[in-house]
């Protein structure tokens, strides 16, 4: 059987069991609404455009935050790879910060930037920059020494050597870094919105929760999941595959 067919059967079963259980045990909609209610809420949210506005607001922050994070991560990664002193000092701090979920910075961020978008973007930047930095650093440090030697015999040195050999040789790592940065940014954004202010998907989720509208809560959860999967599959995994194939690193 094809994996796609297996998957369809699995999800149909999952939703049927959910629907059946809610019907049979007569579960209150404020505890667990039936899938049909969730889909109805999703449909309603899209037809009256509230979810569309939320999506647009969330994506706006995401793109700003992610763009800043990618540029910052690239610069920091290059710095750590090129300067031993920076790697031993700043590098240790960045590794330490990696173990802290970026959302814990929110109270501070609200004090610094106010209860507004800036605070949320700050959380997104923080979450995505660190993983991008680490990947860029690893990529540059893993450039085969033979590439550098070969380029030197062809009279490449200094910045030209860096831009024509070191940078392209580390692109596979940078692409993986981008993909992870997106995943971190998306999670950080949802957490940030949930705990601060709207508009946005995370904020609407909390708003619905305050009014006990669990159908809407689950509808937004589904939306967050779907966007996460779709962007990763359709965009980042595709780029990553293409780059790995071009660089001769793909296994198949």
């Amino acid at each position: 059987m094809q994996p796609a067919v297996k998957r369809i059967i699995f999800y149909v079963l999952l939703f049927s069991i959910w629907q059946g259980a809610v019907y049979v045990f007569d579960v209150s909609p404020s505890l667990l609404p039936a899938p049909t209610d969730v889909f109805a809420s999703l449909y309603e949210g899209f037809s009256n455009l509230t979810l569309v506005y939320d999506l647009a607001a969330s994506f706006r922050r995401l793109f700003i935050g992610l763009a800043i994070a990618l540029v910052l991560g690239l610069l920091l990664g290059v710095l750590l790879a090129k300067s031993k002193t920076a790697d031993e000092t700043l590098g240790s701090l960045i590794l330490a910060l990696q173990s802290v979920p970026s959302i814990v910075w929110l109270p501070l961020a609200i004090m610094w930037f106010g209860l507004n978008e800036m605070a949320v973007i700050f959380i997104v930047v923080l979450g995505a920059t660190i993983v991008m930095t680490i990947n860029v650093r690893t990529g540059i440090m893993n450039v085969p020494p033979l590439f550098i030697k070969a380029a030197k015999t062809m009279n490449y040195k200094g910045f030209r050597l860096f831009s024509k050999v070191t940078i392209p040789a580390s692109i596979p790592y940078a692409v993986t870094g981008m993909r992870l940065a997106w995943a971190f940014a998306w999670r950080a954004l949802m957490a940030g919105e949930l705990l601060s202010t709207g508009p946005g998907l995370g904020y609407s989720l909390r708003f619905a929760s305050d009014f006990g509208d669990m159908s809407r809560v689950i509808a937004i959860m589904l939306l967050i999941m779907l966007i996460g999967i779709i962007v990763d599959l359709l965009f980042f995994q595709r780029i990553e595959k293409k780059v790995l194939r071009k660089w001769g690193l793909a296994t198949s």
């Binding site: 030697k149 070969a150 380029a151 062809m154 009279n155 040195k157 660089w247």
Partner: peptide
């Protein structure tokens, strides 16, 4: 130091994977 009047071939080909065969030869 290294110089263009000396070309070198290593035990491994050391071709750059992000370039085509032709671009590799054009590289120097």
């Amino acid at each position: 130091g290294p110089g263009k009047e000396r070309g070198m071939v290593f035990q491994q080909a050391a071709l750059f994977p992000w370039l085509t065969v032709e671009e590799n030869v054009m590289f120097p």
